[in-house]
Structure formats: C-alpha cells, structure tokens
Design a binder for these strands. Structure first.
Lengths: 224, 224
DNA sequence: GAGTGTGAACACTTTCACAGCC
DNA sequence: GGCTGTGAAAGTGTTCACACTC
C-alpha cells in the first residue's frame, strides 16, 4: 500500500547511527550541498564510509552509483524511517540542574524533539519556569502524559528517586525512558530504557588514559 | 614485579561495564552486603549474570566458587583496574546550562571524578561562580590544564564552537575528550573521544516506539 | 548444593573487496 | 572513472552449559 517499502528489521547498530546521519545531512544541506558521497557523509557523521553504505543499504537506500546520495531526499527518507516526521513530545521528570539544562536546550526542535512538560516532586520548584516551561507537580504526571500524548520520558532526578519515578512513568503508559540518574532501573520488558551516565563515560576515558600511560612509553619518543 | 597481574587486553565492551559494576558494588557495600553472587551483582548493575562472570574473568577475577565475590575487595580491584585510585581532574569547557549543571553535579566525587576548572569564551560568564567553581577565561585553558595536570576534558559548548575548542584542548595536551556538543569532532588518532548526544538517544527511542506501534497490534491483546 | 570460571556455540557488527551501474 | 550496493570474511560480543571448587 505504501510507496516506500517499510524497512523492517534494521540492525540496532544501524538504528543508533541514523540520528547521526540525519544530523550530518542537515548540516550538509545547510551548507548548500545537494549531493554527497558515502565518504563525504561518513566524515560529517564521524564514522567510516563502508559502514555508511552498509547502513543505508538496510533502508533500501536510494543512492546513485557513480554520483552519491541526494542530501535532502536521503534526510527525508531517514526522518521517515526514524518516525521523525512530526516531533516527539517528551516529558522531563526532575527540574534540578540537569533537568533545567535539558528543558532549556534549544537544539531539540531541529532534531524532532519537543519538550511537552517538566515536572518535579519538590514543591519549591513547582510553579517556577525553566527554559520557558512551567514546572508542574509530579502528581500531575498521568494527566501530562495522557493529555499531551507523550510516549517519551527523561528521568533527571537524584538516583534515590529514579526507580519510583520510573514505576510511575510505566504506570502512566510510558514505554520509552531515557535515564540520566546513575542507577540501574528495573522496568517491564515492553519498556525501552536507555541510560546516560556521565561519570561512567569519564571513567571509561580514564581507563584508556590510565593504560596509555603505562603502555605507551614509545608515544612520547615518536615525537622526539 | 606487581603482585596483581596487570590485566591487559580487556575487551572494550567489558571496560564500558566496569563503571557500572563499581557503582553497583558501592551501593551493595553501602547497604551492608559483604558478599554477592554474579546474579546479585548483575541485577544491581542492570545486566545478566553470564556477562558479569565473563567480564570479571577478564580481570583475573577473585571470586570464590560456591560463595560469590567479596564486595569491597572486588570494588577495590575494579577501581585499581580503571585507574580510579585517585580522582581524575577534569576541565569543563562551556559554562552554559549544561556545563553549569555538570559543574554543580554532586555525584562526581564518589565516582572518582574531580572538576578541576570551568572555562568559557563568553566574557560575561567569566568570573561568575557555577557549582562552586569560578568560571575562567578560555584563554587560560593551557594554564589550567598544565597546572592542574588535567587529562580529561568535557566539551559543553554550542556545536559551532566545539571543533575549535577540541583543537585547543588537543594543542594543550588533552588526550581524552567527552563531547556533549552535537557535532562530529575531528581529532588526531591518539586522542580518545566519546560522544553524548541526548537528541540522538531520544531519536533512537523514538524509532523503537514508532515501530512498536505499527508492528505490535498483538501487544495490547496479550493483556485483554 | 551453590556459584564461579571458561571453552565452545552462537549472534551481531565491521571491514574488505569487487561486481554492477551511472 | 567514480561510487554505490552487497556478498563473503574477519572480528567482536553474548549466551550456553558444564567442569570445577568451596
């Protein structure tokens, strides 16, 4: 029925890179590029060209051999695949430093994300405005989600509160959660959970730095 | 010469999980648990037990068959492997909403991260205090890094500024960068770069949500 | 009995290399 | 000639299942 074949069964690793391609293509389009090669797109997205071609082939790609990809067309196609033809409303739970920063983040609009509401448990924060959004009570969570047809949630609470927030979100019908609190959340299997742990990222960098030190005494020597 | 065998060649996937184990073990220790099984640690870290055992075996693990792992001992051992015996000083470049939130984050200390300095290019921000750190000029970057022996940097600038900041960091001797700006940074091969892209994370969640809708009409039926 | 440590099977991902098309 | 699209190969990561130890 649909003209574009619905590309089911895209590998996870590919899905995780589609947003990068989308971002890169938007940049290319903004800089006036109409057509780009896989090599070109690869550097713009920070990956290598073989992987770009493989990834795009999973979408039943629409490149032209000997030429490359039509930047706008490809961007539109990926946006469709990602389901980003209209913005996803997201609720931010926790209006502390991080939650406020996210609520104020200007870059969401261009990436298909719309902050639908910001809620917090702290009565002192309820009623204040962060990033143009009035903070509402966490008790209104269900209303906010149902009324706004929200299906994505961000948890930016202290770790101790994160699990009960997750439970409340799941109870309210949320099926996709992005958790910034450094805790392993327990959610039912039908809920899609992603984790961002800044301290963990730094520790991973630390590990590599630590091992460069004791493993590469030659590194300095190369320059001398 | 060292008593503990230096565990070289740990797989990347394992390294990426070590911080999670560390966090989980600290929580277990705080709740008075002295010994834990791989199953126990797995749920606390949000992974499965087979992977815990495999990961720990790469460290030349020190568990006891039939019993489990000594929580404190294992935590100490992983901390050593990660190089987290003393805190890593980190410089935050960009004191906007996100940079401020990171500077103010209370959880770094317990995870072996110490904010050494916060710098920004905006003269209006220089001199202000965020999270107890006085914002310094980006011109002082080299001084800050050399004086503080900083080897980790966080970029939390607008995307347009990120590449030149990265160049400056590399020039100042930084070899590990955590980039929050949504751009693909170009860095020399000896520099370790990790990327956090919140919008991309949400888009990945969006993709799955989008496909659940059109793929699982049965999901509702299961409950009815 | 309980639970680790690990080889072997499996699954997934990336890279290679080149046929096919513009 | 240049670049895509893709099988086949190589590499990496996860899961299984069970011998082994306490």
């Amino acid at each position: 029925m649909t003209i574009l074949r619905s590309p089911a069964g895209i590998p996870d690793a590919t899905v995780a890179r589609l947003p990068l391609y989308l971002r890169a293509l938007d940049e290319l389009a903004a800089s006036g590029t109409d057509v780009c090669s896989s090599e070109h797109l690869a550097t713009a997205a920070g990956v290598n060209s073989a992987i770009v071609r493989k990834d795009l082939s999973h979408l039943g790609s629409y490149g032209t051999r000997g030429v490359g990809y039509d930047v706008r067309f490809l961007a539109g196609h990926i946006a469709t695949v990602v389901g980003q033809t209209q913005p996803w409303p997201v609720v931010i739970v926790g209006a502390g430093h991080l939650g406020s920063a996210l609520a104020a983040y200007q870059g969401f609009g261009a990436r298909g994300v719309k902050v639908a509401a910001v809620v917090d448990a702290d009565p002192a924060l309820v009623g204040t405005v962060v990033g143009g959004h009035e903070v509402r009570s966490i008790d209104a969570l269900t209303d906010v989600i149902e009324y706004g047809e929200v299906s994505l949630a961000i948890i930016s609470t202290p770790p101790a509160a994160a699990q009960s927030v997750a439970d409340a979100l799941v109870a309210a019908g949320i099926t996709s959660i992005l958790n910034f609190a450094p805790t392993a959340l327990q959610v039912p299997p039908h809920v899609d959970l992603r984790q961002v742990d800044v301290a963990a990222e730094l520790q991973i960098l630390g590990y590599h730095a630590h091992h460069r030190r004791q493993a590469d005494p030659a590194e300095e020597a190369v320059l001398s």
